[in-house]
């Protein structure tokens, strides 16, 4: 994790394949995410983007291929170990603790970062640093005013912001966001983009996104996933000029 490893990809996928029964959803995905970049995966519905995220974050094991985080293999590890190795993800469908307060939602992750996962012998109220850091994340995602409301009572876009906040709390270097702006209005989307930009400063971001304006304003590089393999990886402008991509994907949308 020092300067000499900047050459090494933060996240590297090599020949990653996943089959569900007879259906091969991913057919040998190769992908290098550089340290510190913001990288988007786009692709038509059913291209395997969600499956890709689920493999990286440990929800499923790949059928074949290698996934390396900072040069260390994480393929097939369970989600909590991958998280501890420094990779945290959000979910496309809001996945929060509905009956806990917003503050508690964030504090669970902060506790994990401090290695106090299973603390049983000290009251949580006295853990100054944990509570301070929680307040800090709370401020970063703009939810101070709702700190003590139940997460289930938040509006949709507030829940999405909380979702992103929770992803940050464990202190991971690599953040995976699964369609963070899905279902938002134009105005909410603009706010979310600003939020994502500030909170991922200095981190590595990999996101699945459908909204091209979000991708173009936020990301350094884009990979296009079509029918289970990566068609191209390039800068946003490079991608929009790419002939094959236009035919396979953008063309389809224009039609």
């Amino acid at each position: 994790m020092n300067a000499s490893t900047t050459e090494q990809a933060a996240l590297r996928l090599a020949g990653v394949t996943k089959s569900f029964g007879p259906i091969e959803v991913l057919k040998g995905v190769n992908l290098d995410i550089r340290r510190g970049e913001r990288h988007a995966v786009i692709g038509p519905n059913g291209a395997g983007k969600s499956t890709l995220f689920n493999l990286i974050s440990g929800m499923f094991s790949p059928s074949a291929g290698e996934i390396a985080l900072n040069g260390r293999s994480i393929a097939g590890l369970s989600p909590h170990l991958i998280n501890r190795a420094g990779l945290s993800r959000s979910f496309q469908i809001t996945n929060i603790f509905h009956r806990l307060s917003v503050f508690e939602n964030l504090r669970i992750g902060i506790l994990a970062r401090h290695g106090m996962r299973y603390g049983l012998f000290r009251p949580i109220a006295r853990m100054r640093q944990v509570n301070d850091e929680t307040t800090e994340v709370l401020a970063r995602v703009g939810l101070e005013a709702r700190a003590h409301d139940l997460a289930g009572d938040l509006t949709y876009s507030e829940q999405r912001a909380l979702e992103i906040g929770m992803t940050l709390t464990t202190g991971a270097e690599i953040i995976l966001l699964d369609e963070p702006t899905a279902g938002m209005s134009r105005e909410e989307t603009a706010q979310a983009v600003d939020l994502i930009r500030t909170v991922t400063e200095g981190k590595t971001l990999l996101m699945v996104e459908h909204d091209m304006s979000v991708v173009f304003s936020l990301c350094d590089r884009v990979s296009v996933l079509v029918y289970g393999s990566i068609l191209a990886t390039d800068t946003p402008t490079g991608i929009s000029a790419n002939r094959a991509v236009q035919e396979a994907y953008l063309g389809e949308e224009a039609a």
């Binding site: 993800r89 009956r99 669970i108 992750g109 299973y118 949580i124 944990v130 929770m166």
Partner: peptide, 27 residues
């Protein structure tokens, strides 16, 4: 007192959403 400890809060989180707990680095 248990309910006031980090593990006590984690217990509530498990009740609410076990999957998310896993993706926050907890076994």
């Amino acid at each position: 007192a248990y309910t006031r400890t980090p593990f006590g809060r984690l217990t509530l989180a498990l009740r609410d959403n076990e999957q998310r707990v896993r993706f926050l680095g907890y076994n």
